[in-house]
Amino acid sequence: MKIGDKLLKVLNKTYEPSTMVTRKFGRYDLAMKTDEAGNPILLFIGQADEQGMIKGDQFTRRLIKDENGVTLKDHWDYKGKV
């Protein structure tokens, strides 16, 4: 699975820091773990079961900023099926 432009708009938003955020995106369920700044760094996308566990794909984010807060690297890596 590939992350498209519409999903990137959702992932580039800032959420509550250091939490697991769940939401719907089209026909998919999303679960995003955020860092201390509220940026999503871990993404699970697929179909949630009765317990809320997502069966689908996992992505991790490489987000590197310098001391001034300027983004040097921002990339999502596909980690496989979950």
Rank of each mutant, 00 (worst) to 15 (best):
M1D: 07
M1L: 11
K2M: 07
K2L: 06
I3Y: 00
I3A: 04
I3C: 04
I3G: 02
G4R: 12
G4F: 06
G4T: 09
D5I: 15
K6M: 11
K6Q: 14
K6L: 13
L7M: 12
L7K: 01
L8I: 07
L8H: 13
V10N: 03
V10Q: 09
L11Q: 00
N12T: 11
T14Q: 12
T14R: 14
T14N: 09
P17T: 13
S18N: 15
S18M: 11
T19D: 12
T19F: 06
M20I: 09
V21A: 08
V21I: 14
T22V: 10
R23E: 08
R23N: 07
K24L: 10
K24E: 10
F25E: 14
G26R: 10
G26Y: 05
G26V: 06
R27F: 07
Y28T: 07
D29M: 01
L30Y: 00
A31K: 01
M32A: 12
M32G: 01
M32Y: 04
M32Q: 04
K33L: 06
K33I: 08
K33Q: 11
T34E: 04
T34Y: 01
D35R: 02
D35H: 04
D35K: 06
D35G: 10
E36T: 13
A37H: 12
A37F: 10
A37P: 03
G38A: 11
G38N: 05
N39I: 11
N39Y: 12
P40V: 07
P40I: 08
P40T: 13
I41T: 10
I41R: 00
L42P: 00
L42K: 15
L43C: 08
L43H: 02
L43N: 01
L43K: 02
L43W: 02
F44Y: 10
F44P: 00
F44K: 12
F44V: 06
G46R: 06
G46Q: 07
Q47R: 15
A48R: 06
A48M: 07
A48W: 02
D49F: 06
D49A: 14
D49W: 05
E50A: 15
Q51C: 08
Q51G: 07
G52C: 05
M53I: 10
M53C: 08
I54E: 00
I54G: 00
I54V: 08
K55Y: 08
G56P: 03
G56V: 05
Q58R: 13
Q58T: 09
Q58K: 14
T60E: 11
T60C: 05
T60G: 06
T60L: 05
R61P: 00
R61K: 14
R61W: 00
R62C: 09
R62H: 10
R62L: 12
R62D: 12
L63W: 02
L63Q: 02
I64D: 14
I64H: 13
I64W: 11
K65V: 09
D66R: 10
D66W: 08
D66P: 05
D66C: 12
E67S: 15
E67A: 15
N68T: 09
N68D: 11
G69C: 07
G69V: 03
V70L: 12
T71D: 10
T71R: 13
L72Y: 11
L72D: 09
L72K: 15
D74L: 15
D74H: 15
W76T: 01
W76D: 01
W76C: 03
W76K: 03
W76E: 00
Y78V: 01
Y78D: 03
Y78M: 04
Y78R: 09
Y78G: 02
Y78I: 02
K79D: 09
G80D: 06
G80N: 08
K81Q: 08
K81T: 08
